[in-house]
Write a protein that binds this DNA or RNA. Sequence first.
DNA 1: CCCCAGGTGTCAG
DNA 2: CTGACACATGGG
Length: 276
Amino acid sequence: MEKELENNFSLKHTLESGQVFGWKKIGDKYLGELNGNAVCISQSKNNLEFEGTGEKELGNYLRLDEDAKKIEKSILKDEIIKNAVSKFSGLSILRQDPFYCSISYLCSSNCNIPRIEKMLENLRRRKGEKLLEKKEAVIYSFPTPEKLARLSIEELRECNLGFRAKYVKEFATKVAEGQINLKEIKSKSYEEGRELLMQSKGIGEKVADCISLFSLEKLNAFPVDVHIERIMKQNYPQLASEKKQKIGEFARSYFGPYAGYAQEFLFMHSRYKNIP
DNA sequence: CCCCAGGTGTCAG
DNA sequence: CTGACACATGGG
């Protein structure tokens, strides 16, 4: 199926921004899973080509309904962010599945990106279901909260989760038993939702911000990781001796309701600063 | 063998 | 409230 894009959008900047794990790049196509189906997506200029999902479902995931140019404009507060936005224009913040997103960022603590990818792929391979088998790649679903909750710490350890295994089990159990209701959290304010998420062990301020931004429609959330901390301190001297929490507060009020977009652009800018 | 990686929990001061 | 330090694990 095909779709002509009305708004400014870059599939590459969106799927390779580090906000989401699990998309495999095969040539000019991206293979992955969306809502339990194996999906293949590619873009050429203003045209989006896709298989395995519907136009509406994909459009919602990619946030094609929002005007990206308008969002970008709203955060252009200075030359630094203008520079970052111009390099990665078309980056969209996905509407990820909250459970998958939560597990992703629970696994992210004190760990590098390739290894996070590996942990999540291990969970899919060992505990998910095979959705598609091609010679280039095999796509698995991500295990449900019930499935993860039933696993022992040892089984989770076998997926190389390390000390995060107990946190993943606790979170999955709370979701499976209804003690954590992600839909309900989504309907709450950024501040309230963040507090609720942080009641689960392994979720601190940064992870809660990532979950809020990438899967709970809290586009003002501004996760401050070591990279963002470094960039912010370099670019805004008044923050030089501030801590992560203050940096987040500053950014949310400085960049406004779409501060999360600013975070993604700055993160990309720092991640690829040595690549022309 | 030491250091680091999209941090967080814990415990002493 | 603030600053160490541990935590699993793979790679440099």
